[in-house]
Nucleic acid binder design. Structure first.
Length: 299
DNA sequence: CACTTGACCTGTCCGC
DNA sequence: TGCGGACAGGTCAAGT
């Protein structure tokens, strides 16, 4: 069983891809044991709570809000997981059924040195939370209290919801009128789930320079930007998220959004609109930023 | 208050 | 070959 490994920095489409893969595999599985290794940010809960409400519980749903995964248990607790920069959730089938890692997996035997948490199910299969840089976290929270945690209270609306239109988007992003449009897009309280990749891709699509102040972007251009964000994130979900060059999905195909990216990590290559112009890499809002100097002019 | 910068981390890459 | 430093970027705390 192989899916979604080596997914690059997870934004909304990557987390949604992980959610879908997990949904197909872990719903209905009962937890036999939980092992936590070198992960102070994971399980701030005391071991008694983990034992009482996780061990023996069965997974009933896998949800997503913004970039956070919500693994709901029948114990009325939910495992809340943020992958941050390098987090991965990797499921491996039971070895009794030949479920070792497949030949095309980019992740070797697990657990490995980046494994922080191992969840073992009654059927012998396992779910590994790997996180090389230890920015990610995993918390066990009573399900009714999930909406009350800081992250949930502050995070903005889901941009891919049909109900999220320019009417909602424009006033929200104008709360950040004095900052750059890229910083505003990365602000998770404005809207949820956009990170560095889709900010750059969406801004190129809407022909807006990332360093443009929000106040200098017209309502019309903001409407176009929302359309482009929805387009690139929906396309990415369709492609199974953005992955690094070596990614191979469950079917052994190399499809990934990165192959469709127009500017992200495309510095010094031609802009798709202007074959004579090379994509440039700069720094905006403290992030590596990719622009076409011809179609994205600073206003 | 609004906004920007630095810290949190570790693996990789680049120049000397 | 080894070594130091820059870089990767989501989010929060601290600083301006």
């Amino acid at each position: 069983m192989s899916w979604g490994r080596e997914v690059s920095v997870p934004e909304l489409p990557e987390v949604e891809t992980v959610r879908r893969g997990l949904s197909e595999r872990v719903i209905g599985l009962a937890i036999a044991s939980v092992q936590c290794i070198d992960s102070p940010k994971s399980f701030p809960n005391d071991p008694q709570t983990v034992t009482a409400f996780m061990v023996g519980a069965t997974i009933v749903a896998v949800r997503r809000r913004a970039k956070v995964l919500l693994i709901e248990l029948d114990s009325q607790y939910t495992l809340v997981v943020h992958l941050k920069m390098t987090g991965q959730l990797v499921y491996r089938g039971s070895s009794r059924f030949g479920g070792g890692h497949p030949n095309d997996s980019l992740v070797g035997d697990l657990p490995d040195r980046s494994t922080r948490v191992t969840v073992t199910f009654h059927d012998g299969s396992q779910l590994f939370f790997n996180d090389q840089r230890k920015f990610g976290w995993m918390k066990l929270i009573p399900t009714p209290e999930v909406p009350n945690i800081d992250f949930m209270k502050k995070v903005g609306p889901e941009p891919l919801e049909d109900s999220f239109t320019a009417e909602q988007f424009i006033p929200r992003i104008r709360r950040r009128n004095n900052t750059t449009i890229k910083a505003a897009l990365l602000d998770q309280t404005v809207l949820a789930g956009v990170g560095n990749i889709y900010a750059d891709e969406g801004l190129w699509g809407a022909k807006i320079h990332p360093a443009t102040r929000v106040k200098n972007v017209s309502d019309e251009a903001l409407g176009e930007l929302l359309k482009e964000l929805k387009f690139v994130m929906n396309l990415s979900i369709e492609k199974g998220g953005s992955t690094d060059r070596n990614y191979v999905n469950a079917e052994g195909k190399r499809g990934s959004y990165i192959d469709f990216a127009r500017v992200f990590r495309k510095e010094r290559t031609p802009c798709p609109r202007h074959p004579d112009a090379a994509v440039e890499k700069t720094r905006v809002a403290g992030r590596g930023t990719h622009v076409c100097p011809l179609c994205q002019v600073l206003q």
